[in-house]
Design a protein around this nucleic acid. Structure first.
Lengths: 338, 338
DNA sequence: GGCCGTTGCGCAACCGCTTGCTCAAGCGCG
DNA sequence: CGCGCTTGAGCAAGCGGTTGCGCAACGGCC
């Protein structure tokens, strides 16, 4: 025993003077074992520094302690945080994960599903690539829990986790209103993207609650800085008066800010600015944040979806994941730098 | 057989009319099996759609098909891409991964190491948090391959993968020189960070090769946009003449750009600008990139480190991972928007 | 005091696959 | 023609646990 290898359960049993089965039952909490015997075995395990062979255990139990992850585009800017959040959470629950980056090809995806089944994964997390199109549901092909993050499926009742876009718009709107802004314009991205429409709805709802109309019709384009600049010029050119702009994402906000300054307007005194995505990272805590933005909480979203897969039993269905407001210089105080 | 469960190897053996052992050897390629028998078994396996029980296989082989990942800070802005690159690569090699996000506490780390050993991981990837401080080497505690990404260890001979900071500076410098810029200034972050010093050295080397001095002394501060703005004002105030600024990261570059414009200088005609990190994401391919930057290739770095762990046999030692130049509007052509 | 229910523990089967060893057959060479 | 080596294939052990079932001891109740 303990020759030069590991301590096995039979070592523990021998030391405790019981049989393998009793030792197993004692350590797993199940079965009928007297308190005295149980503690004797526990003590022996502790003394020997017994660590169960996870491989054998998994095998005997038929559970792999592994969660499969199917990503349509793991390297996407938005999927990365979701993925990391999920993987980190799984780690904290002692679950390994096996990631297949399938792209959008149904055949590759089907093949990956077969591989995961062969590997006896304990659960499956499917990572979408945003809200553009519904994913094909694979829930029925698995007997283990399946959840979807950052995307919706074509099947009712699947556990889907998506950012709460309406909340993002509402948070931004309410923040601007709380600063006394009354003429709020909205510049956003792709109208086909439900993130854009959700954020817009949230903003409009906040404005409606305050009894205010938007300062101008929503300007829709793409998600780029260039579009933000173009749209801002158009907004200025239209003659509309506005004291705040809610931008569909941070890139747009940067473009807008740039044009505002060129036109002689001061940010945030003349025009306050809010983006979405919290793309600006802060390395040291000292530096102040430039852009006020809404953090969509993607990592937490990934963790929540992972929790559903690993631990189960949140109610199935679509979960809109909350977001948070992050205040920066573009809505607060004077803006001293850059 | 095939009752209601899975197809097992004994089913295949029975169909092929051979013993379990022969079937096992035939499918694994090893042992001595005649070509005829081998193909008969392969055919049977195909017909039955046999998929080996990965759990049992792992158990018998003593390999978990799992790589441990020890991250000091998984949610760091820079570790995320490294992590995703690594996890994705491991997936393509059929390796699961088990992530422990330990923080910097040595005790937590030691406990995680023990857990990973108990789980019989096939390899270990340690994810640092940049180049600030050396990590404690754990290579000796494992009999399986260990690699370190995004950080160096306190032990000679470990397999470490870090970004090539000098190359980043050199690429930026050579690009600016190739555009005809001759008065290149440098604004960068924390002088204690080897990423900052490496990039600076690379830039200076490129300038020296061209027989040019820098346009001004390097300005060192932090990595923030605010510092970029401050430094740029200082640079202008110093009266130095310059037609390009290489910025230690993209945030600094944004701050610099903002001040340049306020001061009436045109980017890139009057002053060209290069950052580092490639922080600007591009959602649709159409939109043009704003900032010229150096992509440090963190995902590829993670993949390379993972490859070393999973497949082994690159030479051990420190590997400086190459980076690439990404051209945007701040060095190319006229800058139409924002 | 006898009977039955409960409790505590061990025996042995089993999970599905890998692999060392054994044995039989085939074949070339002296 | 016989010997020994090579080749092909099977037997069975073992990996390290889990678990159904059986058995013995014990205690309460009529």
């Amino acid at each position: 025993m303990t020759e030069r290898g590991r301590v096995t359960l039979s070592d523990v049993a021998a030391v405790a003077g019981v049989s393998l089965s009793t030792a197993s039952r004692a350590l797993n909490g199940g079965g009928r074992v007297s308190t005295a015997t149980r503690s004797r075995i526990a003590e022996a395990a502790r003394r020997l520094d017994f660590r169960p062979n996870a491989l054998a255990q998994s095998f005997a139990l038929g559970r792999s302690r592994t969660i499969g992850i199917l990503a349509q585009n793991a390297r996407g800017a938005f999927t990365e945080p979701v993925l990391v959040g999920a993987v980190a959470h799984l780690g904290s629950r002692e679950q390994a994960c096996l990631l297949y980056d399938t792209g959008f090809d149904p055949d590759t995806m089907a093949e990956s599903v077969r591989r995961l089944l062969a590997r006896r994964v304990d659960g499956l997390l499917v990572l979408g690539d945003g809200l553009r199109a519904g994913m094909r549901s694979v829930t029925a092909e698995f007997s283990v829990p399946v959840a979807y993050a950052f995307g919706l499926t074509d099947r009712e009742g699947d556990s889907c986790y998506v950012p709460d876009s309406r909340m993002a718009g509402r948070l931004a709107g309410e923040h601007l209103l709380s600063l006394g802004r009354r003429r709020i314009a909205h510049i956003t991205g792709d109208a086909a993207d439900t993130a854009a429409t959700g954020r817009e709805q949230g903003l409009l709802a906040a404005l409606a609650d305050a009894g205010l109309p938007p300062a101008a019709d929503t300007l829709r384009g793409d998600w780029s800085r260039a579009w933000g600049a173009t749209a801002c010029r158009r907004l200025i050119g239209s003659g509309a008066r506005f004291d705040a702009v809610f931008c569909g994402n941070d890139q747009i906000a940067l473009g807008v800010e740039s044009v505002l300054r060129q036109s002689g307007r001061h940010v945030p005194d003349d025009v306050a600015l809010v983006g979405v995505d919290n793309w600006e990272y802060v390395i040291s805590g000292r530096s102040t944040r430039h852009l006020t933005t809404v953090d969509t909480g993607l990592a937490a979203l990934g963790a929540a979806a992972a929790a559903q897969v690993a631990d189960g039993r949140e109610a199935p269905g679509t979960h809109a994941h909350p977001c948070t407001l992050v205040i920066g210089a573009t809505t607060a105080g004077p803006q001293p730098e850059g």
